[in-house]
Design a protein around this nucleic acid. Structure first.
Lengths: 218, 218
DNA sequence: GCCGTACCGTAACGTACGGTACGGCAAATA
DNA sequence: TATTTGCCGTACCGTACGTTACGGTACGGC
């Protein structure tokens, strides 16, 4: 594939994390592609996307280059939709800190157990080795790492206030992640039927937060 | 696929967990298939297996039925090789209990971060939705659940001795799993380069055990 | 009105791969 | 020795899917 002269390469590369360059129609196509990814999993195909989006395959290739490009654009389209609310950093008493962490945990758990996230992680994992564009890293960047960037300042603030204690916030975050998810994510990925009601998510976030405070509270 | 009259079905179904029915030559083929799975990932193909094992495709189909059957047999072949040592249930003082848990954690962490485990989980995840034989469940059964069967009696003994306290051992096990692995497994699956040295594994198992005792010790 | 551009629908191409068929050969069986 | 069996190597078939090509339509600019 001679990518040098292709008119779409610039667009793909420029896309980066945000999708401000996308037209409304392109967004519709990506939305259809995303839904189909959740629906079909590894049977997701260019023809199917074209049909579902009511567009021609030629358009898909013009806009996104190839299958991998469409996949990446679809993943980023979803990533841009998931915006974690900023955590509340004001009036950091212990109770407020706990509330913020717990709130964060609820969001993280809700996102990572959603059908969409599971489907996206599945496809990224299945292509983790062979993919040129390293879809796995994109998913990690937009999921696991982006979350860390949100939570860690809160944890560090908690440490400054003398409420928390740890050597580095990265490790503390990883602990919280483990307490929160346990084996949930891998079981979902493997097809285990762990349906998490909104209530269970709330409860699990509360438990994890309590355990986290027990380990890292002063 | 008309499986009713196929002469191999009985063999496949009888296999179950153990592979006592396999001839030595069949074991060699599965070993080659396993190595190739680690090496090729989703590019694992019947032709490649036949070539690597120096056998004909026809033989593969005669022995294992179809691609899925060979995949399942390969996974079970690996599962039979990984035997967790039984945990030491005697003289259960607190120190001995902690030592046993930590030892268990080391093994679990070593297995689940191995290239083989990652490759197997990858292929099971990528086929989680479409697979007729539910490869994901087989992997879970032989990995996550089999481990639980080993650790839980130990935890329950610890509770009887008044060293540990929890509502049910399943939840306690899930907590330990989370503390031990954190985000390690998902990151490995997604292609993140987390090389765990034997020393780091030891250290991480110690940390997780300490935290587990902090949460569930009396 | 005419041209270029963008897009849709669909057909066609190339290839990779799951699955099958068959010839040959060597060991077991009779 | 003659026959059957089990397996290797390889050629082959059918199909699915990524990718390309092309005819047809809508539309904005000159």
């Amino acid at each position: 594939m001679d990518a040098i002269n292709s008119h779409w390469v610039g667009k793909i590369l420029k896309l980066g994390q945000d999708n401000s360059e996308l037209t409304e129609r392109q967004g519709q196509v990506l939305e259809a592609a995303l839904n189909l990814l959740v629906l079909l999993g590894d049977k997701w195909t260019m023809t199917a996307v074209a049909k579902a989006a009511s567009c021609s395959k030629e358009t898909l290739y013009n806009w996104f280059g190839d299958r991998e490009g469409l996949l990446v654009a679809t993943v980023q389209w979803q990533a841009a939709k998931v915006q974690m609310p900023d955590v509340d950093m004001n009036n950091l008493g212990r109770a407020a800190l706990v509330r913020s962490i717990e709130q964060f945990g609820r969001n993280l758990l809700r996102v990572l157990t959603s059908e969409t996230s599971v489907a996206l992680n599945r496809v990224a994992i299945s292509r983790a080795r062979s993919s040129e564009s390293d879809l796995g890293m994109i998913v990690l960047q937009n999921g696991r790492f982006a979350m860390g960037k949100r939570l860690k300042p809160l944890l560090e603030a908690g440490q400054r206030e003398g409420i928390l204690q740890f050597l580095d916030s990265e490790t503390a975050y990883r602990s919280f992640f483990g307490l929160l998810l346990r084996d949930t994510q891998i079981r979902l990925l493997l097809g285990d039927n762990l349906t998490k009601s909104s209530n269970e998510i709330k409860q699990q976030a509360a438990i994890a937060t309590g355990q986290f405070m027990q380990l890292y509270g002063v």
